[in-house]
Amino acid sequence: MAPLLSFPPVPLERLGLHELGEIPFGPPYYQLYWQQRPVLTGRYFGAEGLWALAERYFFCEEWHTLDRGKGPITSLLAFDLVEQRQCVVSHATRGFIRPVRVEGTTLIYEKTFLDRGTTTEYERDIQTLSAWQPLYLS
């Protein structure tokens, strides 16, 4: 299966997302690929990703359930590709969370709650991220 999405400037053969399926009447979900191999198997991701700080960090949404009745339950993840680690930036229960942009060292992201009809923007300094866990990509 060819990668559906990749996020510049990391070449396609290094990091990308492959579509795995779609929630009935909902958005598609993806598997993270590293050097054309699936990584973090058993975990599902949204379609949007964001690179920051000279391609050191990659931010994307992780889905914690594919059950339409229970979800969406999502988290915004930070991947530090230099230190090979990951952490949760924020959670959204019954909503979606997506990275929007980075200004300096500040990550701007949005939480959207469809049942409430609201979208709210948040900021987080990347340098204050904590609770890092090892990231095994190879």
Rank of each mutant, 00 (worst) to 15 (best):
L135N: 06
Y57D: 05
G21F: 01
P9Q: 10
E103A: 13
G42V: 03
L50T: 08
L76W: 07
Y136H: 14
R116N: 11
P24C: 04
H18W: 04
T93I: 03
Q35M: 12
V89R: 12
E55Q: 13
L12A: 13
R14A: 10
R68C: 03
P134W: 14
S6P: 00
L12D: 13
A78P: 02
Q133A: 13
P11E: 15
G46A: 06
L135V: 01
C87V: 04
Y136D: 10
K70Y: 07
W34I: 03
Y29D: 00
Q35V: 00
Q84A: 11
P38N: 09
R94P: 00
I73C: 04
I108K: 12
A47F: 04
A2L: 12
P134Q: 14
H64F: 05
E61R: 05
L32F: 05
L114F: 11
Y57F: 15
G26F: 00
Q36Y: 10
T105K: 11
G117P: 09
W34L: 08
I73V: 10
R56H: 12
V100N: 08
V39Q: 07
E22V: 00
I23P: 01
R124F: 09
S90W: 05
E103C: 08
L76D: 03
F113E: 07
Q31E: 10
G104R: 15
F25P: 00
L135F: 02
F25K: 15
V82D: 15
Q133H: 11
Q86S: 14
L107S: 02
R37Y: 10
L32C: 01
T105W: 02
G46E: 06
F45E: 03
Y57S: 08
T41N: 13
G42A: 07
P72C: 09
T118I: 14
T120N: 13
H18D: 05
E110M: 06
Y33L: 14
Q84D: 09
S6Y: 14
C60S: 13
V10H: 07
V10P: 01
Q86G: 06
T128I: 11
W63L: 12
P3R: 11
S75W: 05
L53C: 12
I126D: 15
A47L: 06
G104V: 07
K111N: 02
L135W: 07
G49L: 05
R43A: 03
A92E: 07
G49P: 05
V102G: 02
S130K: 14
R56V: 05
D115C: 00
L4A: 07
E22Y: 01
Y33E: 08
F25E: 15
T128S: 15
F58T: 01
H18Y: 04
E61W: 00
Y44Q: 01
H64Q: 14
E110C: 07
V100Y: 08
T93K: 11
S75Q: 14
R68V: 10
H91I: 03
T106A: 10
Y136G: 06
V89C: 07
L129E: 10
G71F: 01
Q36G: 00
G46F: 04
C60A: 12
G117T: 01
R94D: 03
S90Q: 14
G49W: 03
E22C: 02
K70V: 08
K111H: 09
E55R: 07
D67Q: 11
D125G: 02
P24M: 06
F59M: 11
L81T: 07
E55V: 02
R14E: 15
D115N: 06
L77E: 00
L17P: 01
T41M: 12
Y30Q: 02
Y109N: 06
